[in-house]
Design a protein around this nucleic acid. Sequence first.
DNA 1: TTGTAGGCGTTATCAT
DNA 2: ATGATAACGCCTACAA
Lengths: 342, 342
Amino acid sequence: MSSITIKDIAKICDVGVTTVSRAINNHPDINAETKQKIMDVIKEYNYVPNNSARNLKRTDTKTIAILVKAVDNPFFSKMIRVFEKNIHGRGYNFFLQHVDEQQDEISVALQLEKEKKLKGIVFLGGRFLNNEEKLKMLSVPYVLSTVGGIKIPDGSVGTCISVDDRKESEKIVDYLCELGHKDIAFLAAMADDEAVGKLRVQGYCDSLEKHGLTFDKDMVFYMDEKFEPYSMKTGYEMAKQLMGSGKKFTAIVCVSDMVAIGASKALFERGKKIPQDCSVAGFDGMSQSYYYEPSITTIKQPLDEMAEASVEAIFTMMETNKSIDSMLFKGELLKRKSTDRI
Amino acid sequence: MSSITIKDIAKICDVGVTTVSRAINNHPDINAETKQKIMDVIKEYNYVPNNSARNLKRTDTKTIAILVKAVDNPFFSKMIRVFEKNIHGRGYNFFLQHVDEQQDEISVALQLEKEKKLKGIVFLGGRFLNNEEKLKMLSVPYVLSTVGGIKIPDGSVGTCISVDDRKESEKIVDYLCELGHKDIAFLAAMADDEAVGKLRVQGYCDSLEKHGLTFDKDMVFYMDEKFEPYSMKTGYEMAKQLMGSGKKFTAIVCVSDMVAIGASKALFERGKKIPQDCSVAGFDGMSQSYYYEPSITTIKQPLDEMAEASVEAIFTMMETNKSIDSMLFKGELLKRKSTDRI
DNA sequence: TTGTAGGCGTTATCAT
DNA sequence: ATGATAACGCCTACAA
């Protein structure tokens, strides 16, 4: 049952293992004929080199890992394509690894770093707050992509790339204010979300203040742990809570497009019309927001740019071995049908 | 720069490498104190065992790989959770690997099988038609999950698990017929999709025939390669094509919920009302179909059951080393607002 | 152009 | 309970 190895191939071809290795790895100094013969035998016997053995021995791997937290974030799949293109374009391989909700992404990275002899790591999403100690343990450069506000600890090489959550959140609330809304509810992330969640609420506050509106903490609703975060379901539940609260509101700003869709459903169920009875805004700029009826006003995150910048950053850091300043990207306000003058 | 190894730990603790290995792997015959001391040192030095070396040496790994084609299929993420629960519940580890559109999933599996010493493989989605030769090369049992109609070649151990695409497609078209529709368009998968795509079209035909309606090939629209398959965009484009064709239709059945959402958008753009002017039906039963306005009539695939059956099957095959008959699951017709009497 | 031998970091075997 | 040592499968000096 033990499967075929390079030695077996060597024996069959009546050559040394080195020669087989050369054939496999496209080394230059090998006779074309012998190489052909070896490749034929390899194909015939379905020989597949053992990657563990390779990784163990190899030194210069030219591979970058992308660790994705929460696979089901449709948001990320577009970025991954950009990563792929750009990384391959530079002659590197990349390796996509999913990190599930319970796993700690840094621990996974630490393992992979050794196992695959990585040159760099891109984290797509994830929680890094209060994790400086662990980040410091990473011995290769890393990018926290779509993650803002993390301080890169001295002694490690990394950077953060994200949209300017606070400013963009302010921007979309500004828009609603300009449309004449004064009672604007906010459907936020989990109460303990210190990163994205908090920043977007702050932007909301910034805008209210700027427009002379008073912030009412009861107009902010936080996700319940028991629903999937950022999901339609959670938006639906929050909107029901809002409506049940008796608070008066003419607009709802949501922490994500999916939440906005869920909230809209709750409004429709109560017989409300969007935007006539209530305006609804999202955040992220996912294609769902366009296809929904009515199309949803949102902030489009510049995913392509951010992905490109991430690759750029990781390669720069791999060369210089020095951290780069964090980058904040601007979003784009997409004015659509779900919002209107009051 | 070379990182710390088991030998270093052994030296620091003044014990043999074997003892350290025992500590790491929770072997029974080791003194509790020495074990504690070793674990402390490991923590202090942030030692992480090299997985490549482990995999190389290990024999009994108790791990199953799940290869997912097209991560961004939101459809799969729910199943993955079920897999996780059930596999861990049986004391096995599992490893999630993403396979991108260009990669050949069987080749990836072949590599992983060796690299990770896998005991079994679950393929989630993917194309396997005319790939019997390659499937045969797999030396561990496998399940093709959400994939129907593939013949498991002799000489390998595997099975297929999927919804009964043909029957369920027939079922939803039946429902539209019962509502009085006679001009039913079908937005299908790619023309060359011999699996899911073809089966669902067949179900459509079955139903038409049963109801004494004549099949009109011009009422079937296939996805264009240039759009992302099964996406809202592709549904949108197909619906526009349909409307541009001049064909009369009172209902549209779509190959997926996402396609249905895209198609709905196109209808709305032309000022059509759903379901008053046109009924729309999807397939899959994704939560999106519920949250959309109007909620979309669809066939709900029993994802949980299918995932559980997949795990059940892989473990059974790992024990018996014999293939299992393919399984077809029934879906559930969810009657919602997007469809109505003509 | 080709082959031999040693070692990558770990675990398994066999002593002690 | 613990340790020395030989694999695991591959790559890479170095030698021929």
